[in-house]
């Protein structure tokens, strides 16, 4: 029978403990790094200083107008694609399209006055903008629906941009570049979409 000296055993035990401790530290470090990296991928990116969330930051009236404006934006893009020009706000009213349609929804949400403030030229591009201002409700914002430039013959897809101004009587901006809008007090509304919720629930899709 071999007898191992106590001093030698202690030496091996210390070495073994050290190895196990290093391995455990590596596992913990890996797990923390993995969890941190993964947490970065879930949910929408954080808002920038000049952005507001449609879900978290808008009041009920602003939220209702924003929800309607997103769909209207898509439809206006289709109308432009089909007919080549930009529909005027009285045409959108006649097409029953909220928030331009002057119905009970429109009255309940402050009877906002909408104007087509700039229309991109089909050949030379540029931005198109609809301004909604003069709403009658306390705390209500002014809205700006922008269609960023697109290439001739292409349909609008994700060039629709919605901004709000805390001054409900804000004037039409002289320039629709993002920097100019921010310096004039406009804030870009970031919609909390189904895609964002899906990313939060299940991780990024596709």
């Amino acid at each position: 029978m071999t007898v191992i000296a106590i001093a030698s055993a202690r030496k091996y035990q210390r070495l073994e403990t050290l190895v196990v401790a290093v391995l455990a530290a590596c596992v913990v470090a890996f797990a923390v790094t993995w969890a941190f990296t993964r947490s970065q991928q879930i949910g929408p990116p954080p808002l920038l200083d000049w952005q507001v969330s449609s879900l978290a930051d808008l009041g009920e009236d602003d939220q209702a107008i924003h929800s309607a404006l997103i769909v209207a934006g898509e439809e206006i893009g289709y109308l432009n694609y089909d007919f080549g020009d930009w529909p005027k706000t009285d045409e959108l009213d006649a097409l029953l399209m909220p928030p331009f349609y002057k119905d009970e929804f429109w009255k309940l949400h402050g009877a906002v006055k909408w104007d087509l403030i700039r229309a991109a030229d089909y050949n030379h591009g540029g931005d198109t903008g609809y301004l909604g201002a003069g709403g009658a409700l306390p705390g209500q914002s002014a809205f700006l629906l922008l269609f960023r430039h697109r290439h001739v013959g292409a349909a609008y897809a994700n060039q629709i941009d919605i901004w709000i101004h805390r001054n409900v009587n804000a004037n039409a901006p002289a320039d629709t570049k993002a920097e100019s809008l921010v310096s004039a007090g406009w804030r870009q509304v970031v919609a909390y979409s189904g895609a964002d919720e899906l990313a939060r629930l299940k991780g990024k899709q596709e």
Binding site: S54, L55, S67, G194, L198
Partner: peptide
């Protein structure tokens, strides 16, 4: 995903 571009409330 039908809701991908819907602004949720």
């Amino acid at each position: 995903y039908a809701n991908a571009s819907v602004a949720l409330i």
